[in-house]
């Protein structure tokens, strides 16, 4: 792993000890896991094929060899078992970091996630915390078989007792994962699998604020709200729109629960127009919640109804149709056009 890591000696302009490296998200996540295992002896990584193999996406590559089979281990192939076991390990004082191999494989574990992980702290009146970080390779974009391209954020965000976060780039992935693992509450960590292999700068010394949303690109005319793999796409859209003189702000929501309402309000109060972009189906998708929040907070300044550019209310399609389903640049540009051209009454 380390041979592949191209380390950049960046000028430390601010004199803050900034330490920039050029990593893929897979490398950044792997690094974050290794450092979390080092930092806290109670952390455990387990799931399907995460040991010897290093996970089907190699996110846990080398960790069993380095930390031993007590800390990093393969389980039988049963997601409910993996998550149910996480509850018991948390009750015994451990900090489980289970992996569900693909988004769609979380469905067999929904009973344990919803009825147990989300409620044990509540049921026990805070005496049995559930510091579980569930890593889920998520969203589409890799021409995969059925159940390998799902977007579950709305499902999990609806469940009391769970928090949900999704990183957009290697820097965010490195810091948000370490931050999530340190939390005393259950966090569903949705990794945009389509972005695993793109490299980007990671400042390992400074993650900045890790709560709430972040402005990925400032702009004046319209706010694009996105998370996970859609953030990079929205940044591309912003570049294209700039050619036409449209100054797009991209808000990387990061935390899908709790949603950073203040950041939404601050951005849309400036731009007065909002477009939410997500891969999940439209109906009851997180875009609906965001549209409601923006409307509540910004009703008096909004120039147009909040626009949603989303997947459709269909099962995630086969690879051939994937590009028709996942919001693409054209569809996002149309969304921007609709809010810019909207005229009242």
């Amino acid at each position: 792993m380390s041979e592949q890591t191209a380390e950049i000696t960046a000028p430390d302009l601010a004199g803050t000890g900034s330490h920039l490296e050029h990593l893929s998200m897979q490398q950044a996540l792997n690094r974050a896991l290794a450092e979390s295992l080092e930092e806290n002896a109670k952390t455990l990584i387990f799931g399907e094929d995460v040991g010897q193999l290093g996970g089907v996406f190699r996110i846990t590559d080398g960790l069993q060899q380095r930390f031993g089979a007590d800390r990093v281990f393969d389980t039988p192939l049963a997601e409910s078992g993996i998550l149910g076991m996480s509850v018991g390990l948390a009750m015994a004082g451990f900090h489980p970091i289970p992996e569900v191999q693909f988004d769609g494989f979380a469905y067999p574990a929904v009973n344990q996630i919803v009825c147990q992980i989300g409620r044990m702290n509540y049921r026990s009146r805070g005496t049995l915390p559930m510091p579980i970080t569930l890593r889920v390779p998520s969203f589409g974009g890799i021409r995969a078989p059925e159940h390998h391209g799902e977007s579950l954020e709305s499902l999990f965000a609806h469940v009391p007792g769970l928090k949900v976060v999704s990183p957009a780039d290697p820097h965010q992935a490195y810091h948000l994962l370490k931050h999530a693992i340190r939390r005393p509450d259950p966090v569903i960590f949705m990794e945009p699998k389509a972005r695993y292999w793109q490299k980007g700068p990671v400042d390992t010394a400074d993650g900045g604020t890790l709560e709430g949303a972040r402005v990925a690109r400032p702009g004046r005319h319209v706010t694009l709200i996105a998370w996970g793999a859609m953030v990079a796409r929205c940044l591309q859209v912003a570049e294209l729109a700039a050619e036409d003189g449209i100054d797009v702000e991209v808000l990387d929501l990061r935390w899908l629960k709790p949603i950073d309402t203040a950041a939404l309000a601050a951005s849309v109060t400036r731009t007065r127009r909002a477009v939410v972009v997500h891969e999940a189906p439209r109906t009851s998708g997180l875009g609906a919640e965001i549209a409601a929040l923006v409307t509540e907070e910004c009703f008096n300044v909004l120039k147009a109804p909040v626009e949603r550019v989303t997947g459709f209310d269909v099962p995630y399609p086969s690879g051939d149709l994937e590009d028709e389903y996942v919001p693409n640049i054209d569809r996002i540009l149309f969304g921007i056009q609709r809010v810019l051209e909207h005229r009242r009454g």
Partner: peptide, 12 residues
Amino acid sequence: GSVLHAVGWAHG
């Protein structure tokens, strides 16, 4: 519901 929790606790 809690049968798997016992397994996790025991493995701990």
